[in-house]
Amino acid sequence: MICESLKTCFDDPGKFLGEWFVLLPALVLLLAAAAAVVLRNLIHATLCLTLSFIALGILFIALGAEFVGFVQLLVYVGAVAMLIVFAILLTRPERLAKSDTALSGLGPAGGALAGFVTLGVLLGFLFTSPIAKKSLPGPASAPVAEIGHALMGDYKAALIVVGVLLTAALVGAAVLAMEDKNS
């Protein structure tokens, strides 16, 4: 039985994709994101956020956007999550294990209410929209070579702008975080 279903997954990856390979990372993504929002311990929240980044990357790969999935893992897990961790360690070294956070004036009830209202509006549009009823078309893939040609062709202006933006952000972050020598 298991053997049969695994065989179909090897013969027809698209079918397997529709059943398992998307739903499992999606479930992990939901749980990890919920934990990241709910947990009081900052480090735990960040680790759950990292897990949700990983699940999102796997979801991208499962949807056929292999390159974006790997970029997501490289940038978010390798850089953004580590930056957040570093900021936490730099800003509260005095309480290592007990870095619990306070709640703002709006409180958990207000935040949850706003979240639910937004979710309700979005889902309402979603379930009435005809576009959302689309079923999965045939297998799709985004070859690296084509992404490269597109980046160097139609999107070269955007690529240069992003390059300038990243350089400016790097220099800006370094200047901002630099020790003030005068004071």
């Binding site: 893992l73 490289l74 897990v77 070859p143």
Partner: peptide
């Protein structure tokens, strides 16, 4: 893998999380 080098570095980033 078509983007094997990228895979190598993307997955390797997990090591930092483990060390932290």
């Amino acid at each position: 893998l078509e983007s094997g080098i990228l895979f190598f570095f993307a997955v390797g980033a997990g090591t930092e999380v483990a060390i932290f």
